[in-house]
Design a protein around this nucleic acid. Sequence first.
DNA 1: AATCGTAACATACCTGGGTATGTTTTATAC
DNA 2: GTATAAAACATACCCAGGTATGTTACGATT
Lengths: 196, 196
Amino acid sequence: MARQDIKSAETKDNILNTALALFRQKGYEAVSVNEICKTLGLTKGAFYYHYASKSDILIYSYKEEADRMAQYYQSISSEKPLVKLKKFYNHFIDFFQPDRLEEMKIFFKVQIESHYENFLGSSRIQRDIFINILKEGQSSGEIREDIPAEILADIISRYRFGLHIEWCILDGKINLISNSTRDFEAILKLLTPPNA
Amino acid sequence: MARQDIKSAETKDNILNTALALFRQKGYEAVSVNEICKTLGLTKGAFYYHYASKSDILIYSYKEEADRMAQYYQSISSEKPLVKLKKFYNHFIDFFQPDRLEEMKIFFKVQIESHYENFLGSSRIQRDIFINILKEGQSSGEIREDIPAEILADIISRYRFGLHIEWCILDGKINLISNSTRDFEAILKLLTPPNA
DNA sequence: AATCGTAACATACCTGGGTATGTTTTATAC
DNA sequence: GTATAAAACATACCCAGGTATGTTACGATT
């Protein structure tokens, strides 16, 4: 049973890797499931045995992203709250590189069409981390306390979400970095205690 | 030439109406283009002569929405800035009713997949109106002036956008109204001048 | 009024995601 | 070792969106 499982996991991994390679090379839509299979010397039957759909591949490839996010948060745990907030926020923004535009489009579409609980995964982690940082900042007096950290976190993470989707819809025509840094400066101002 | 144009516009309108009726009745995905055509006694050729794609229908149906938005803004022009802001914001939220969930899902998907300039249309109108209201509030002293109205408008409209997409992805499982009113209270606090 | 071009459709076909149903290989049980 | 069941694939097919190419009807031009 062990040998079979290993081989099965291998082919599943092979499918994922060659598929992602082809996507980066020719674009998601331009690559058919048949092409992925032909490249590997397999057939559709094998593909749909391992993956529920073509877009399912992307879900698997991004599942690890949530973990990396949490790891990054660990790596900056010693920083001050506001610095931490900025670094963690920028880490999100940096993830959306121009060459990943089409990929991200598909990813958002997949999340919308499928009742995709995993969104809750990566998004909840993001939200929870924001809450932690904000609460920390509230205790240290750097962040206003008249609004609960949960609400502030929701506003910030939904803003980021909206910005990224806008970026996708507008085909990357808005400058993500400049928009983001500009708005984040404002957000930091909004977060400072009103009577400071 | 006039009579032909009228007839053409009629069929285009007929396609739109029966398609929307079928969508509401059976759901967008469950209705095929062939079914729409058969209902009207037409063929695919006619359909794709008038519309670029199946999803193109939804775009046309929402094009008027931007106009209605602007109209509503006119109707509340006499209100005070903060009241205006709240009313206009809520007008957006109210648009997303539970029975429109699937429709909105498709709509967002369509916007993402097609290089959809019309998003710029309805979204720019929304943003411009926000800017107007915020600027008005800044002159009257109700809204803080240390952040440009444009940036504040971007943050608010992107938050709203993110909230609505989150609502779609989570299949309407978050309470849109309560979330929205709760967060908007906070946003109003964030907008008040810091030294007030 | 005959011609000609184009708008408004119809027909036939392609394509690619997804499925239903085989067939083979592998592990386990006796 | 053989029977059995399920995993891991292969084959054949469906289906719906979209396209390429016809055909007809209408309006404009001479």
